[in-house]
Amino acid sequence: MWEYEYSVETGADAGTVWRHWSDMAAWPEWNDGIAKIEVDGPFAVGTTFTMVPPGDEPIRMRLVEIVPGELFTDEMDGGEFVVRTVHRLEPVEGGGARIVYRTEITGPAAGQIGPEIGPAITADFPDVLAALVRRAEA
């Protein structure tokens, strides 16, 4: 298994962050890692979506877990490996929230594929979370 986690704190409340997460069509407005997104349903478990990173090939994903106001998990099935990212909100004492992105790459090919693609998948987490915080705090 390959894994990476990054977190940041915001003074914005978790509900505000959640509204930005659950509006998938608007992700490209604050996430520079998404040039285009096509969503095949509501923000619900089982909904599939296709993200196109700038200058790259489309990536087909699926929402596999949602705990409203707390977390959602998306997954990309690569056959011999699975990329799963958990997006989690944790309360911060005194108000606000900690936003956590955690990516895990599992499966028979994870040992080889994880170190190859994992750093590229997670490289923009600091920028993405900074942009999300700016938007949530505006």
Rank of each mutant, 00 (worst) to 15 (best):
M1Q: 12
M1H: 10
M1D: 11
W2T: 09
E3H: 13
Y4C: 15
E5L: 08
Y6K: 09
Y6D: 04
S7C: 09
E9Q: 14
E9H: 08
E9M: 12
E9T: 14
D13R: 03
D13T: 03
G15D: 05
S22N: 08
D23S: 11
A26E: 07
N31H: 02
D32A: 14
D32F: 07
K36I: 09
I37W: 00
E38T: 04
V39K: 03
D40A: 01
D40M: 06
A44P: 01
V45R: 15
G46H: 07
M51S: 12
P54N: 06
P54F: 10
G55L: 05
I59D: 12
R60D: 08
M61D: 04
L63K: 00
V67C: 03
P68F: 07
P68V: 03
L71V: 06
L71Q: 14
D77C: 09
E80W: 12
F81P: 05
F81E: 00
V83K: 01
R84D: 11
R84Y: 10
R84P: 13
T85G: 09
H87N: 15
E90K: 07
P91F: 03
P91R: 07
G94M: 02
G96D: 09
A97F: 03
I99M: 14
I99L: 15
V100G: 01
R102L: 10
T103V: 11
P108G: 09
Q112M: 13
I113Q: 01
G114K: 03
P115Q: 07
E116G: 02
E116K: 09
I117D: 02
I117S: 05
A120W: 04
I121N: 04
T122E: 13
P126W: 11
D127N: 14
L129D: 02
A130K: 14
L132C: 12
L132M: 11
R134C: 07
E137D: 03
